[in-house]
Simulated scan of single mutants.
Amino acid sequence: MDHSSEEAEPFRPNPAKTKAEKLKEDSNVSSAKSQAIKEKTMGNDAYKKKNFEDALNHYQKAVDLDPTEIVYHLNIAAVYFEQKEYDKCIKQCEKAIDIGRENRADFKLIAKAFTRIGNAYKKMENWKQAKVYYEKSMSEHRTPDIKTLLSDIEKIIKEEERKIYIDPVKAEEEKELGNQKYKDGDYPTAIKHYSEAILRNPDDPKYYSNRAACYTKLAAFDLGLKDCEKCVEIDPKFIKGWIRKGKILQGMQQQGKALTAYQRALELDPSNSEALEGYRQCAVSVSSNPQEVRKRAMADPEVQNILRDPAMRLILEQMQSDPKALQEHLKNPDIAAKLQKLLESGLIAIH
């Protein structure tokens, strides 16, 4: 077999660098790194003074001298953020992440880059993208600050979705469906319709009142009471809310508190028959069984604390001897709140 006379060029390794060349190269690298740190320091000083263009120039020089250091790229991104150049900030952070990954940067710095991207998206009101990047930051390094940022952004997203869902017309449709189910005695389904009406229009008190009526029918008094309280919080003049609250409190055997609810209803309409009847029933119940009322009241830790207070005991004694003293004491909100608690518990009565 004929062999070609032309032979392949043999592999010749590059001659090893001399010790002097290596030292010179290391010295150059070390010098560049030192100069980069100086540029970063000057950049930081300018940044603190809000001289962002100067800061940017110094950080860029630091990058030119030491392009593998993630911190300098992050500092450039920080300047863009302050200048409200959010798109530039995001791109710079993405570049920093790539460089950081290639050079095995501390995961805390990678997390910082993701957080800064999240902050930029938050400023641009792109809540969902902000959430994505806060989550990425958390996956690199969990800190309480990022957890708070993530929690806050989730609340914003939830609130935005809630606002989009609001539709008063659909709320009324759901209420009508709920009313029909209530008439049919199908209270669980009525609750579903009233709940949907609340989601569609959360600022209308009547939906809470209607749902409270269903809860009362199902003897879920605690849930009904919560709805009544929301109802009168939205509209303190919504008389049906106070009456319903009174009925629920009666069902919970809290006659003193029920009395107060009926009293609020009667302040709005002194001739309301439901409120008058409820008030009468509670007043009779409280007066006919004082021992039971006292026993129940004394078991309440809040009542116990009020009665242990020497100042309050003095006020109660003064009220007995001088009824006019009450008006003076009611001017103090703290004392008024404590007297209201004792009234609701049925321990004292004001005539």
Rank of each mutant, 00 (worst) to 15 (best):
V232E: 01
G224A: 01
A297N: 00
V293M: 12
I248T: 06
L223T: 03
R116E: 00
Q281D: 05
I243V: 13
L314G: 14
K183M: 11
S287V: 13
V63P: 02
D167C: 10
N332R: 02
K136F: 07
Q320N: 07
E172W: 05
G118R: 00
A46G: 06
L109R: 02
R211L: 04
P15A: 15
K324S: 11
A8Y: 09
A16H: 07
W127P: 05
E7W: 00
N14F: 13
Q92A: 03
A275Y: 01
P144D: 04
T18L: 08
L339Y: 07
E317S: 14
C89M: 06
E233F: 13
E6P: 11
M42E: 12
I117N: 00
D309C: 08
N289Q: 10
A96F: 05
K17R: 13
H3N: 11
R211H: 02
V232M: 01
G224V: 03
C228N: 09
F107Q: 11
R200D: 15
A258P: 10
L23F: 06
E176Y: 04
H73K: 01
A120T: 04
V284T: 11
K181E: 10
K324P: 00
I234R: 06
K122T: 06
Y187M: 10
M42C: 03
P333V: 04
H141T: 02
A258H: 07
H3Q: 13
E302Q: 12
A120V: 03
A275N: 01
S27G: 12
P236M: 04
T260W: 11
Y279P: 07
E328I: 13
L249N: 02
I166W: 03
K331A: 08
G346R: 03
E159G: 10
E344Q: 11
E328H: 12
C93N: 14
R142V: 15
F52P: 01
P168Q: 08
K49N: 09
K324Q: 10
L199A: 11
A113F: 06
P15W: 11
N51Q: 14
E274F: 05
L307T: 07
A219H: 13
L74V: 02
K40D: 04
S288Y: 10
K147I: 14
N103F: 14
E102A: 14
Q281L: 14
E176R: 09
F238P: 00
I315D: 07
E94N: 05
S321K: 10
N28G: 07
C214W: 01
D227I: 07
Q318N: 15
A219S: 10
E6H: 08
L314E: 15
F52T: 05
S345G: 12
G278V: 09
A197H: 06
D204P: 08
K48R: 13
A297E: 01
A213R: 00
N44C: 03
Q281H: 09
S271M: 13
I164L: 06
F11G: 05
V286K: 02
G43T: 09
K163I: 09
H58S: 10
